[in-house]
Design a protein around this nucleic acid. Structure first.
Lengths: 158, 158
DNA sequence: TCTTTTTTTGAAATATATTATCATTATCGC
DNA sequence: GCGATAATGATAATATATTTCAAAAAAAGA
């Protein structure tokens, strides 16, 4: 039995729900709920940024050094979460794939073509407009994605 | 002097313009116009699909075997074209980056998840809104892409 | 045209990212 | 707790991308 405490900084209702959904999903597929899978989900939940497998691995190594979590486990878990539509992977510009929890509200992305940084935003008017356009063209809208490319504030100052 | 003929299947006005722009760009940056750079641009122009560096390399090896074009040259040229905003790289789902020519008009797409049909549209209000959002967040907007996924009219009738 | 200067090239080496293998360990139903 | 099964970390194997460098090609000048 592990002595590791997950020591969550936040345990919101929303997170509890997400965790429960994850457990149900695992059970339905004869997969096991492990401490590694839990801390990866928790880390994604508590992070505001889009994480690469590498950065996620670093964070986890610092936060839970006794777990000695392997990079392979991070990759495997991210694939599992992506297949299960719990996280979404993005890959814009230069540096590799980035993952984000997909359970939150729908949002679009501003992507810096210089540093690869990704900022999220939501705009109700655009959401509405998209529905209008789909309707007008006799299209049954299921999902959408939008990216704005450009140069972020800090890169402009360089 | 090379004996290779580029043997273009199509040489539209649009392509000639693109090629000219490319030549001007090269000259302005003290770069040289090479047969390799030309066939890569031509191949991207004549392809309907999004190409990976790998697939582009294969196509070029088959089409111009005597050129013996190296994979490094493909990567280098794609980076150059991307930096110059002539092509855009995308990365959907699993493996690696894909490139497409980005010189055309803004591409907003309605994509049918049933039949794969793609309809283009432009909406001024959305374009404006995007600029407003970028401005508000101190972001210098260069480009954008938007996709709406759903079911098209004819697939709904089936 | 020929010569000089500079850039580009292909091949190979290197670096980085991702996936597979496998012996060991953990989970979970009983 | 026990046994069946799945997951783990370490590391090997692949896949993907970039760098190096001598030779070749392109542009500029005469």
């Amino acid at each position: 039995m592990s002595e590791i405490s997950t020591n969550f900084t936040e345990r919101t209702i929303e997170y509890e729900q997400l965790l429960l959904d994850f457990k149900v999903l695992l059970k339905n597929n004869n997969l096991k709920f492990t401490i590694q899978r839990e801390v990866i989900l928790e880390c994604l939940y508590n992070s505001d940024e889009h994480l690469t497998p590498e950065s996620l691995h670093n964070i986890l190594q610092n936060k839970y050094p006794d777990l000695k979590i392997g990079i392979a486990t991070v990759y495997r878990t991210l694939s599992l979460l992506e297949d299960s539509k719990i996280v979404t992977s993005l890959s814009f510009g230069a540096q590799g794939k980035k993952y984000e929890l997909g359970a939150k509200d729908h949002h679009d992305h501003l992507i810096c073509t210089e540093c690869g940084d990704i900022t999220e935003f939501v705009d109700d008017q655009i959401e509405k407009k998209q529905h209008q356009i789909a309707d007008k063209l006799g299209f049954k809208m299921l999902d959408h994605s939008m990216q704005i490319y450009g140069i972020c504030q800090s890169c402009q100052q360089k």
